[in-house]
Design a protein around this nucleic acid. Sequence first.
DNA 1: AGGCATGGTGAAAAAATTATCCCCCACCCT
DNA 2: AGGGTGGGGGATAATTTTTTCACCATGCCT
Lengths: 110, 110
Amino acid sequence: MLDCGLSVAVKVVGGKWKAWIMDCIRRGIQRPSALHREMQEVSPRIINLHLKELEDYGIIYKQVYAEVPVRVEYRFTAVGESLLPVMDVLEQWGNENREHILAGARSHLV
Amino acid sequence: MLDCGLSVAVKVVGGKWKAWIMDCIRRGIQRPSALHREMQEVSPRIINLHLKELEDYGIIYKQVYAEVPVRVEYRFTAVGESLLPVMDVLEQWGNENREHILAGARSHLV
DNA sequence: AGGCATGGTGAAAAAATTATCCCCCACCCT
DNA sequence: AGGGTGGGGGATAATTTTTTCACCATGCCT
């Protein structure tokens, strides 16, 4: 089922919040607490789970600073970096077609 | 939440089977029965639901031929066509990174 | 009539995803 | 000791998505 590259990519980028999380990290919001503040409509727990998943995929890695209180920063790995242009393409397409899609998305809500 | 184009795109392309379905249609497998045969691991019902969703988004449209038995073909709309290059990018990235992703996907199965 | 093919749906169950709640740890400070 | 910060996790519930199962309709054919 993960035979087509499309499925692999969708698995990584899909899910309700992963794309947003990656977009945040990209914009420099890389600390858990900062992500929680930025994405207030998402429970911290969920953000952590997604971060873990992305980390497992090797898209981001966790930089831990031995400070006190401890500081953590998530950054893109090389593979993660290679995903950025792909996200750009998605982002652009989404922006160009938002109205069109949303018009027919009445049922399949938000 | 659908403010970033990324979310819009993910909504369209995401889900467990939509990407695969669109890939099939693209390859010329556009009739429901053919899709069912091609994607045997997916229940016909689900394929229909996804087709409906894509149709609602205006990505594909349904061509009905008044033959007997009735024949139906799903085809891309103009907006759907504009999504193809985007899928290409996803497909390519997925193919290039399949091994890497799958290695860490043990938990987050299939 | 019964069997084939086509395309399709409603209801309910199962599975996966997301959310909530309350807890933990270490360490600083007052 | 109590309160603050920063980073986590388990258990459970709610929600969404996917699946199964049984069923409908048309019109062919034997």
